[in-house]
Computed example of a mutant assay.
Amino acid sequence: MHTRRSILKGTATALIAASSMPIISTLAAAKAPFAEVQAPAFYRMKVGSIEVTALSDGTIPIPLASLYSNTTDEHAQSALAAAFQGTDSETSVNAFLINAGERLVLIDAGTGSYLGPKLGKLIRNIEASGYQASDIDDVILTHIHTDHSGGLSADGERLFANAIVRVNKRDIDFWLDPAKREGATGPLKNQFVEAQQSLTPYLDAGRLETFDDDAAPVAGIGSILRSGHTPGHSSLVIESEGEKMVFWGDITHGDVLQFDEPGVAIEFDVDQQKAVEARRAAFAEAASDRYWVAGAHIAFPGIGHLRTDDTNYDWVPVNYSAG
C-alpha cells in the first residue's frame, strides 16, 4: 500500500540516484528559436453575397479600468479580473474590408505609426488577406480619432492612393476647425493635430468627401448617426440576401464591462452622456434585430451578436469557420 511516507521516501531515493549520474547541461541551445510573432490577422466571412474581411491593426494594452467613468476603478478592475483581464487590458484595433463585387470599401484605417509598434499593422494584413492598399476605392471612417484615421497617411503621403475618404460632416467640422484646435488642451490637442496630418493629403487631393446624418456614404452602405463618442460618430450598415451587419465603430471599448453596464462611459468620449445614449440605443437594436455586429475595439475579429441576459447584455463572438 502506498502511503505519503512511502511516496516521499521513493522520491528521495530517486533524487539520490539521479545525483550520481553525469550532469547534462540545461543551457543547451533550443532546437528552434521562439517565433514571437502572430500569424497575419484577418478573418473572412459572407454577409449574404457580400464578402467581409476583418483586419487587425494590432492590439495595445490599455488601463481600461482607470479610463472608464460613471463607475469606480475598483469595480471596473473587479469586472475585468473576472474575465481574466489584468490592469492593462489587451485591446484590439479592428478595421473591416467590404467587397460587394463592384467596389472595395475599407471601414476605418487603423493607427499608422502614431500609437507604437504593437499597432500599425493594417496594410500588411490587407496584403496578407489577398488585397493591396491601391485596390481600395473608398475608406469610410466611423469617426476621426487617431486609431481610426492615423493609418490614412504617412509623411504627408496618401497610403490609399486610389481611395476617396468619406466621413460624417459633423466630424470634419469639429476636427478640422482651427478655433477648436487652438482651444484644445492635453491629449485632445494631439488628436486635433493628428487628425489634420492624416486627412490633409486627401483634402488637398480633392479625395475627401463628407456624408450627412444617416445617409449612405456610398451606394449599398448606409450609416446611423451615433453621436457622442465624437460629434459625427457613425455606425455603418450593409444588408444582403436577408442578412445584415452593423459596423459599430466605438460603441464599446472592450467586450466586458460596458455590455453589463451600458451607462459606463470612457475618457475618450467627447460627450459622455450622448455616448451612453448612443450605446443604449445600439445595444437595444442589435439584441432585438439579431443582426451581425462588428466592433472596432472588441477582441479580434470583433464580429458577433448581442443578446440579452440577466445582467443586461451578453456578447456572443462569431463561431470560427474555416470556410
Rank of each mutant, 00 (worst) to 15 (best):
A76G: 01
G116L: 13
A79H: 02
Q85S: 10
L141K: 00
M45K: 03
R5P: 01
D155K: 12
H297T: 07
I221K: 04
Q132G: 10
N70W: 05
L199F: 12
I107D: 04
T13D: 02
A184D: 11
T72N: 13
E90L: 12
V270N: 11
D212Q: 12
A54W: 02
Q191E: 15
P178D: 15
K31M: 11
G302A: 06
V293F: 06
V218D: 10
L159N: 12
Y291L: 04
T146G: 05
G206N: 05
P217Y: 03
W248Q: 12
S134M: 00
D213M: 10
A216W: 06
L64G: 00
A81S: 12
K31F: 07
L176K: 08
D138E: 15
D213I: 07
G304E: 11
W175P: 00
P61D: 14
G254L: 00
I238A: 03
E102F: 08
A17I: 12
P63F: 01
I303W: 03
T252A: 05
V47N: 14
K118R: 13
L203T: 05
P187E: 14
V47R: 05
R5H: 06
A322H: 09
A95K: 01
S56N: 13
Q196F: 13
S6Y: 04
A81K: 11
E241K: 14
I164W: 06
G110T: 08
K244Y: 03
A195C: 03
A275I: 01
L115M: 14
P231H: 10
G323C: 06
V139Q: 11
I224G: 06
P117I: 05
I251A: 09
A82Q: 08
A95G: 08
R124E: 15
A294F: 06
I7S: 09
S113W: 09
N168D: 14
S240D: 13
E243S: 10
R103K: 15
H2T: 07
N99T: 07
E74G: 01
L15S: 10
E261A: 09
K189E: 05
A286C: 02
K31D: 15
S288N: 12
L159H: 04
K169S: 15
R44A: 14
A109L: 12
A281V: 03
T146N: 15
A35R: 09
I303G: 07
I123L: 11
D108W: 00
F259G: 01
A39G: 10
T230Y: 11
V293M: 13
F300D: 02
G304H: 05
D271Q: 10
R279W: 02
L152I: 13
E285Q: 13
I238D: 02
T185A: 15
A286F: 00
T3Q: 02
P301D: 14
L15A: 15
S92M: 11
G220I: 00
E267I: 11
A29S: 09
I266R: 00
I107A: 06
A296F: 08
M1C: 01
S49G: 14
A95V: 03
F34L: 14
G101D: 07
